[in-house]
Amino acid sequence: MNRLEQFEHLARRARDEQAPALDVSRRVLRAIRLPQPRFEVYSPVLAAAAGLSLVAASVVAALAVEYWLAWSDPISGLVQSFTLVLQ
């Protein structure tokens, strides 16, 4: 008997093999009630990322306003313009 014949013999024997007993009905029912399990898994990560992005965006915006106020001095510019208009 060559190796291929041996393999074929084993495969014929293995046809009768049965898997262990299994009950997945509860798991399946739980899964079909949550149609987007992947999103559920990743949602805490997404929420944390969104929160961090919001904080970072606020800090950048505050720094930009502060920079603009410090260097262009818009308030005295506005006062001067207003005075000129009045004159």
């Binding site: 049965q18 898997a19 262990p20 007993a21 299994l22 009950d23 997945v24 009905s25």
Partner: peptide
């Protein structure tokens, strides 16, 4: 339906 077919699919 799952209970009726799960062992066939498990095998």
């Amino acid at each position: 339906l799952v209970q009726g077919h799960q062992q066939v699919i498990a095998d």
